[in-house]
Design a protein around this nucleic acid. Structure first.
Lengths: 341, 341
DNA sequence: CTGTTAGCGCCTTCAG
DNA sequence: CTGAAGGCGCTAACAG
């Protein structure tokens, strides 16, 4: 049986109230009482019972972060930044990855909305229908989202500016002289960034007084790691009689899939086909040729989200507007050239 | 003020004990009582208070997973597998990434060893001195480790067979006719896999009746993501008057760094230099040329670790021996050729 | 099958 | 600055 506060109190010759104060509000306890308490704690190897504290205080110092998967570089960075910020604020992280499974998401939301489960929630890049998310939003627990928007959802959301990211990439290709440009996009109906990307694509064309060929816009539901589907889509694109001279991929992983297909077909990048990615993941620098892509401020998003959440939880006013767009930056490397060069 | 069990009991016309039973041991409650209780729960939107339950039951249904960082592909997979297994067993995951920071590790261990913080701990690939880990091991909380061994540490550990992984890679190069083979290894003194890899390297040579050139074994302390240090080490290796004809990198990320350096110098892989990696991360297939590397069963490790931990927590006998080596497999792609080919 | 009762260990007024 | 006392919400004996 581990020591409890009462044991410490007895050994130190004080009351449990004093022990508690020595721990939580040391400034209210005299120097020597405090050190006697500390000594007793040391001697008994006393450990605070967190459940008891939570029951009393109604807080857990834990926040839940729900993410689609832990195995995507951008999500990684966001989680890492969130964790750093959480540690600084003395919070701990419950990781809930849904893996695109609605049931699992449901179960996590169920858990999270229990009393005294967590003090706040970060919901990163959900692909799911608003119903699920609304359940969370309706609960009293503070919620901050990233990369999500839906009608009737008032939760604050921090978004990468993906209309700009794809706009920049497309513009870059347009400037090089490309016209037959394909867009490889995600089709998840509730995934807001997908809509933004499509918009960026179309706006870039519009900005040049042109319009994209709708048949070159392919939108798949499969997440990036389902490479087979993506590969098939890419093959189909390159099989077309009048194949595109450039491909805008919605993220680096899909761009690499394009690399793989090209390699298999003996198509040279960028001579035979220009390609852009998005996210500027690590391999973008390593592949051959290095990938022109868009850098997005992932850790910044994580930090901001956590700060926002902290503010919500403390009843302070948020540091940024409830709908914040984060700037992105085109990184030109060597995967694009003039068409037919 | 959210509803508590008492409110539900009152509305359903039963005692709180019955409500509790209806929730936790429904088979002990009559069909109709149960449905009345459920109805009341529904009506009041009652949520169980987890802190109160934990206080009573002394368990949290949470397990802590401490990892060096969340941004390494292998760690990713392990965490993902662990989470899957945890969900199946109705546990939830507290993620503690140390980022190689001893203080932070300390703080997490402090947290974890509090009462009612978590029910068990998974410690994955620690790079730290045994002292830190021992503190955990001495506590009463169930602990399972991955990729760690130290004298005086009795905690079970599941290890990738890295003497085999590097042995296979080295052997492959030896078989191709290479003799001047360099090893790029991690030097973290307490990182057991590093020692295994070195051993695998030396054993491969010994198996061929040869001995490696000790000056071609470079061991750096920097984690993989500190690319500058690694790049410098690679440059130095290639600057040597009698430079190696092949490089065995301890993981794919470092191998890619070799790719980058070669590209910058106009050195062709594999014609001018053969390279092997380890871990078989996603980009290994995408880089040019595709990387010969070693596949390690990351999700298997995660699953096994969680199963082992579950067994410990339930007082059952573990499914595997306390020291288990996991098989690895060489994946031959196109980054190696005969020397001077 | 159901109710009564007694804490789990801590924090927090309220007095002193 | 310190102590006494009550209760956070739930579960687990123990009776019935």
């Amino acid at each position: 049986m581990p020591a409890k506060m009462e044991d410490v109190a007895r050994l130190a010759g004080v009351s449990t109230a004093t022990v508690s104060r020595a721990l939580n509000t040391p400034e209210l306890v005299s120097q020597q009482t405090r050190s006697r308490v500390l000594a007793a704690i040391e001697e008994l190897d006393y450990k605070l019972n967190l459940a008891a504290r939570s029951l009393r205080t109604n807080q857990t110092r834990t926040i839940a972060i729900v993410i689609p998967t832990i195995s995507e570089p951008v999500i990684n960075q966001v989680v890492e930044a969130v964790e750093d910020a959480a540690i600084n604020a003395d919070y701990t992280l419950l990781v809930c990855s849904t893996r695109g499974d609605a049931q699992r998401e449901q179960a996590y939301i169920e858990l999270i909305t229990q009393q005294t489960a967590v003090d706040g929630v970060l919901y990163i890049s959900p692909r799911s229908a608003p119903e699920h998310v609304l359940k969370l939003a309706r609960s009293t627990i503070p919620l901050v989202m990233c990369n999500y928007r839906a009608d009737g959802l008032s939760a604050p959301s921090i978004l990468f500016d993906h209309v700009s990211s794809i706009h920049q990439a497309t513009r870059h290709l347009l400037d090089l002289g490309h016209r037959r440009i394909a867009l490889l996009n995600l089709a998840a109906p509730y995934y807001y960034p997908a809509r933004m990307r499509r918009e960026g694509f179309e706006q870039a064309f519009a900005g040049a007084g042109l319009a994209p060929d709708p048949s070159l816009i392919v939108q798949l539901e499969q997440p990036t790691y389902d490479t087979d589907e993506w590969r098939a889509a890419i093959e189909a694109l390159l099989d077309r009689p009048n194949r595109p001279t450039a491909i805008v991929a919605f993220n680096d992983a899909v761009a690499f899939e394009v690399y793989a297909v090209c390699r298999a077909r003996g198509l040279r990048i960028p001579e035979d086909l220009s390609v852009t990615g998005c996210d500027d993941t690590l391999p973008a620098r390593y592949v051959n040729p290095p990938l022109t892509t868009v850098r997005i401020p992932a850790s910044r998003q994580g930090h901001l989200a956590m700060e926002y959440l902290l503010a919500c939880m403390n009843g302070e006013s948020p540091p940024i507007p409830p709908l914040t767009l984060l700037d992105v930056e085109l990184i030109v490397r060597e995967s694009c050239a003039r068409p037919g060069a």
